[in-house]
């Protein structure tokens, strides 16, 4: 395999990552730790065979980036791991779960393999203008699972002149995270975005955000919903709510893109904010990213349960800005207490 040995060799095997890799914390096996994954990658360059256990080690990384943030040697493990997943997939080495996920997406354009209309939640199609300054990119999760959030977001953004793509496709994030080629989807979404003439694409999903920002051609500006809202909060008709909420930083908004302050700004404009036990750069991962929820649900939920232990007492809601985090935290026991930032804004505007 042709892995980036320079990046791999930067790891000095100090083991510091044992203290922060959330997967290792659950598993206890060195192969579930950042350092172990890097050792396995090195092994692959010298004859180790990519059997199921090896794939399990690499595929259980949530790409949360907490190791990148803390590694004293400046290694960027999720980047190295994603690169390796890509090479393995190109060699036909993948788990059944990886194969199923990609099959679904390639067959239906969404992660669920759902044949229904992606815009079924939109009651008034007349709101979709052909040309617009902004495009709201809803993503698979909000289009199919959290349609109310999609509707709330579009209602907010539409006031500022946002439209949606007529036939939005999966952004490609789940494919890219798990090692597949997503060019087909990137090209198709880009073509539709170009047709609208929009120079800004706004998304409420942290996974879509990272992908649009880092894997798409830089023909348009990408904004996350919290960034957009923080810029426009004064123009919105918001009334304060007598609530206390906490905020969960999605890894792909926070550590991957340094969006920490904007969602907090929006929350503080509405109600009281109590921070979680770990937040910002140090925020614990919900366990759902990097294809872990799709491939290793039990492990993923265990991490989400740990994250819930960080929630401070006496909060009315756990607010976040990523539907993947919402689903995992809800399924881990927090239920409807977990809401999207947009839903909080919608409450304040009622």
């Amino acid at each position: 395999m042709n892995l980036d040995l320079k990046a791999i060799n930067q790891c000095v095997r100090c083991g510091s990552c044992r203290t922060f890799c959330p997967v290792f914390e659950e598993s206890g096996w060195e192969s579930a730790n950042t350092r172990g994954r890097i050792m396995i990658l090195k092994g692959l360059t010298c004859g180790l065979q990519p059997d199921l256990q090896v794939l399990g080690s690499l595929n259980t990384c949530t790409t949360c980036g907490i190791c990148t943030e803390n590694c004293p040697a400046g290694v960027n493990p999720p980047e190295i791991i994603e690169n390796a997943r890509r090479q393995l997939v190109s060699l036909g080495k993948m788990t059944c779960q990886q194969a199923d996920l990609s099959r679904n997406i390639f067959a239906s354009g969404n992660t669920f393999g759902d044949g229904r209309d992606r815009l079924s939640w939109l009651t008034d199609r007349g709101l979709l203008t052909k040309k617009a300054d902004y495009v709201y990119f809803a993503g698979c999760m909000n289009s199919y699972r959290y349609t109310e959030t999609a509707a709330n977001t579009f209602a907010l953004l539409n006031r500022f002149g946002a439209t949606m793509l007529p036939a939005e496709q999966c952004c490609g994030s789940p494919l890219l995270r798990t090692g597949f080629d997503a060019r087909r989807f990137i090209d198709e979404n880009c073509r539709q975005i170009a047709n609208t003439g929009a120079k800004t694409v706004i998304t409420g999903c942290a996974g879509c955000y990272t992908t649009l920002k880092k894997s798409y051609p830089q023909d348009f500006r990408v904004l996350s919903v919290p960034e957009f809202l923080a810029e426009r909060i004064s123009e919105m008709d918001i009334k304060p709510l007598d609530l206390t909420v906490t905020y969960h930083d999605p890894c792909h908004l926070g550590r991957h893109n340094q969006i920490y302050e904007q969602p907090r700004q929006v929350i503080r404009a509405i109600c009281r904010l109590k921070e979680m036990k770990t937040s910002g750069k140090a925020a614990r991962c919900c366990g759902g990213g990097g294809g872990v929820r799709a491939g290793y649900k039990d492990l993923s939920l265990k991490m989400a349960k740990k994250r819930l232990e960080d929630v401070p007492g006496e909060v009315d809601y756990i607010v976040t800005s990523c539907p993947l985090c919402i689903r995992n935290l809800r399924d881990a026991g927090a239920g409807e207490k977990v809401i999207d930032l947009v839903d909080l804004v919608a409450m304040a505007m009622q």
């Binding site: 095997r13 192969s31 080690s57």
Partner: peptide
């Protein structure tokens, strides 16, 4: 207990 080549590789060295 593990006898898998990948796990064994992770336990082959320290720093």
């Amino acid at each position: 207990v593990s006898a898998s080549p990948g796990e064994r590789c992770c336990y082959a060295s320290d720093a």
